[in-house]
Computed example of a mutant assay.
Amino acid sequence: MLVLPAELTHRQATACLHMLLQGLKAHREPGVVVDAHALAVYDTSALAVLLECRREAIDEGKTFAVQGLPPSLRSLAGLYGVGLLLTPVA
C-alpha cells in the first residue's frame, strides 16, 4: 500500500509524485492501493498526483484504487469528472 502524506499541495506535489512512483515500481502486487487517510491539507494538485499515479499503475498492468480520500476532495474529483477514476476500496 502506498501512503499519502498529511499535506499535499502544489508545493509538495512533485516530491510526493516521485515518492509514489518509486513505491509503485517496487510494488509487486497486481493491484495498487493508495491510502489517503492522513491527508488533511490539500489542493487540486493532490488530484493531479493521484491521477498520474493511476496512469502509471495502469501502464504497468495494475489496478488502482484510493482509500480514505477526504470527502471534500472526493467531491472535487466528481466536479472535475474524475471521481470514478479514484474509486475507493470496498
Rank of each mutant, 00 (worst) to 15 (best):
G78V: 07
L79Q: 14
G81A: 03
S45Q: 13
L76R: 09
P88K: 06
D43K: 06
S72M: 09
V66Y: 05
R11F: 07
A48L: 09
L79F: 15
Y42W: 15
A6H: 03
D59P: 05
T44S: 15
D43M: 07
H27Y: 06
L85R: 08
L51E: 01
S72I: 07
Y80K: 06
C16T: 14
L73C: 10
P5H: 02
L73G: 05
A48E: 13
H10K: 07
V34T: 00
A46R: 15
L21N: 11
G81N: 08
T9M: 13
L20P: 09
A57K: 00
L20N: 02
D43R: 05
L85A: 04
A40G: 05
L47T: 12
L73I: 11
H37A: 07
L86E: 01
L47C: 08
V32T: 01
G81S: 06
L17E: 15
K62A: 00
H18L: 14
L85F: 06
G68V: 02
A38I: 05
L50F: 03
A90V: 03
T9H: 12
L79C: 11
E60G: 00
L51W: 03
A15W: 06
P88Y: 10
Q12D: 02
P71W: 14
T63W: 00
L39I: 07
L85C: 04
E56F: 05
Q67K: 14
I58G: 05
L2M: 09
L85S: 04
T87M: 10
L50V: 00
I58F: 12
S75H: 15
D35M: 03
L47K: 15
K62D: 04
A57H: 00
Y80L: 11
R74K: 13
R54N: 04
E29I: 00
M1H: 05
L69S: 08
V33P: 06
G61A: 01
I58N: 13
P30H: 07
C16L: 06
R11C: 02
E52Q: 14
L39N: 05
G68Y: 11
T14R: 15
M1Y: 07
A77W: 14
P5W: 03
I58V: 15
C53K: 00
K25A: 12
E52Y: 12
T87K: 09
A38K: 13
R28Q: 15
P5C: 01
L4K: 08
G78N: 12
V49S: 03
R28D: 11
L47H: 14
P71C: 12
L4G: 03
G31T: 03
R54H: 02
P30Y: 07
S45W: 14
L8A: 04
V3A: 12
V34G: 00
L39G: 02
P70A: 11
E56N: 04
A6Y: 01
V3G: 04
L17D: 09
H10M: 05
L50Y: 02
